Amino acid sequence: MAAKREHEIDGATLGVITERMSERLIPQIRKQSIFMFQLEKLKSTETNGEPATRTCDHASQPSSHPDTSLVIPPVLRMAIDSRDLDLKSASKTKLRSLLIQTLFNHLSKTTMLPTRFQYVELLSTLNLDYPFLRESIGSGYLAWDLRDIANVDVDQQILNKVAVMAPRIIRVSRSPLKNKLMCMIDDCAEDKLKTGLLTEAAILLLPALFKEKPELLFEVEGQAQTSTDMSTPKMMLKGCREGHPMKYDHIMLSMDDQVITEESVDISMALGLLLCIYFVFRIQYPKGLKKTLTFLECVVLKLKDAGKLPVTVKRVYNSIYD
Rank of each mutant, 00 (worst) to 15 (best):
H65M: 15
T45A: 14
A52S: 10
T68C: 14
M78A: 09
P74L: 08
L70T: 08
S60R: 04
R77F: 07
S69C: 09
S69E: 12
E50S: 04
S82A: 05
S63L: 10
L70K: 02
S82L: 04
D67F: 15
P66Y: 06
N48V: 07
S82C: 07
T55I: 06
K43M: 15
S64Q: 14
P62H: 03
T45D: 13
P62D: 06
S60Q: 01
P62S: 04
I72F: 01
Q61C: 00
R77D: 15
P51G: 05
S63K: 01
R54L: 03
V75C: 02
S64A: 09
I80T: 07
C56V: 08
T47I: 12
S60L: 02
H65F: 12
L70M: 11
Q61Y: 10
C56G: 00
P74S: 10
S63H: 03
T68G: 07
H58Y: 10
P73Q: 06
T68V: 15
P74R: 07
M78P: 01
S82G: 06
P73W: 07
P62T: 03
S82D: 10
D67R: 14
H58N: 05
A59P: 02
L76M: 01
V71Y: 06
R77M: 04
E46T: 10
K43N: 14
T53Q: 02
H58F: 03
H65N: 14
M78C: 05
A52H: 13
P66I: 07
A79H: 06
T47C: 13
D57W: 07
Q61A: 09
G49L: 12
T47Q: 13
G49I: 13
H65C: 14
V75S: 03
P74A: 05
H65S: 11
E50D: 12
Q61K: 11
A59I: 06
S63M: 14
P62I: 08
K43L: 15
G49D: 09
M78Q: 08
A52T: 08
S82Q: 04
E46S: 13
T47M: 13
R77Y: 13
P73A: 11
T55R: 01
G49E: 02
V71D: 09
T47L: 13
T55A: 12
T68N: 11
G49C: 12
V75R: 03
